[in-house]
Amino acid sequence: MNIQPPVKVFKRKAKPRTLADQNKNMENQELEERFQEKVDAELKIEPKDWMPEKYRKTLVRQISQHAHSEVVGMLPEGNWIGRAPSLKRKAILLAKVQDEAGHGLYLYSAAETLGTTREKTVEDLLSGKAKYSSIFNYPTLTWADIGAVGWLVDGAAIMNQVMLCRTSYGPYARAMVRICKEESFHQRQGYEIMSVLSKGTPEQLEMAQDALNRWWWPSLMMFGPSDAESPNSAASMKWKIKRQSNDELRQIFIDRTVQQAEVIGLTIPDPDLKWNEEAKKYAWGTIDWTEFNNVVAGNGPCNKERLVARNKAHDEGAWVREAAMAYAAKKAKQKAA
């Protein structure tokens, strides 16, 4: 439950030897051992449980980044709502973008259970201090990009999110279960767009292939650096925040997606892609991490545009937030009178 600081708690003061008192005397190490035992026993950690400071920090960073990604993720897709090729596609895209807003909100709530305020979290996004998934710094140039984003970007996100349904922090896991239920429509609608385009005119097929070419590698980057280069991963695995490594998830995504591309007659833009019969998985090329680091550092094609758009929306919504509070205050006063 998201009941954080403003909660009244009945402390049992009279008892001389409560567990709370014992905790105070315990070394941090002992607390940490008990925490780890809980995690190892697959007991979820809940907001008011003791947790290592690093665990809390890691979660706050990860959950708020995740929330920001959902929110910023609305921008590249929103770009096509007014230009969707049919009313059906427009309604679907609207519903999808609305879902992304919802997902952002579930996640912001989960982050708040860790003692951060919504205000601070949003502020960090708007000031550029907080990160969000780099994939949303790429532009959506054609309608096929909406297909590619749903199929590949949501597809890659789902791999990660299915794993996170079993993450050790209760509120995060619960938000993920809700998100995963909604997410598979996102991936399927994207794949359907690609499938329809690939069966269309030669120009439409070309458009679908072009979108795949541009989105393939950035989608693989979404899983993060390779395990060897990912220093925070070990702690996250030990605490069961993460349960599968970046490379494991990336490989499963590739194995699944290559088959899906074949079905609709599109070609994965990787000359090194080759089925390894012995290992029962694809061997594939090398990710250009220079590009990834460059986009993370703020130099992707749309980094600036995204932040400007978020700030503009936030600033232009200020009067609505203020008016709603003023109205609520007036009503409360009338009721009291």
Binding site: M1, I3, V9, F10, R12, K15
Partner: peptide
Amino acid sequence: PANAISASQPDDAEMF
């Protein structure tokens, strides 16, 4: 309202 909810203490749960 979140601040209207009162809750038991997880630290005391065993004893409680």
